[in-house]
Amino acid sequence: MTQTVDQARSDRALIEEATKKSGLIWVRGAEGPSRALWHVWHEGAVCLIGDGDGEQPLAGLGLVDGGTATVTVRSKDKGGRLVAWEARVVELAPRSEPWTATAAELKAKRLNAPDSDRITERWARECRVLRLEPLGPAAQRPDAMPDGSLAAAPYPSPATTRQEMPAALPRLLRKGLKRR
Rank of each mutant, 00 (worst) to 15 (best):
R118Q: 13
D117W: 10
E16K: 06
T70H: 04
V46I: 08
Q163T: 13
L63G: 04
R122P: 08
P154G: 06
V27Y: 06
P57W: 00
Q56V: 00
D115I: 00
T102N: 03
R174L: 13
E164W: 11
C127W: 04
A36L: 14
S116E: 05
W26Q: 09
S149N: 06
C47P: 01
E97K: 12
D53S: 05
L63F: 01
L48C: 00
L14C: 02
L58R: 02
A144K: 15
R28V: 02
L61T: 05
A167T: 14
V27E: 05
S10Q: 13
V27P: 02
K175I: 11
P158M: 06
K78S: 15
E121P: 03
D147V: 08
G32F: 05
R118S: 11
R180E: 11
V83G: 01
V71R: 06
R128P: 07
V5A: 14
D117C: 01
V5S: 11
P137Y: 07
D65W: 03
R95L: 05
V89H: 15
T70F: 01
A159M: 09
E17H: 10
L37M: 14
Q7F: 07
C127I: 07
T68N: 10
T160E: 08
R74D: 10
Q3W: 13
Q7E: 14
D143F: 14
V40Y: 12
W26K: 06
P154I: 02
D65K: 05
D147E: 15
D147P: 14
R171H: 14
R131I: 05
L106C: 04
Q3S: 14
R28D: 00
E133G: 09
R180D: 09
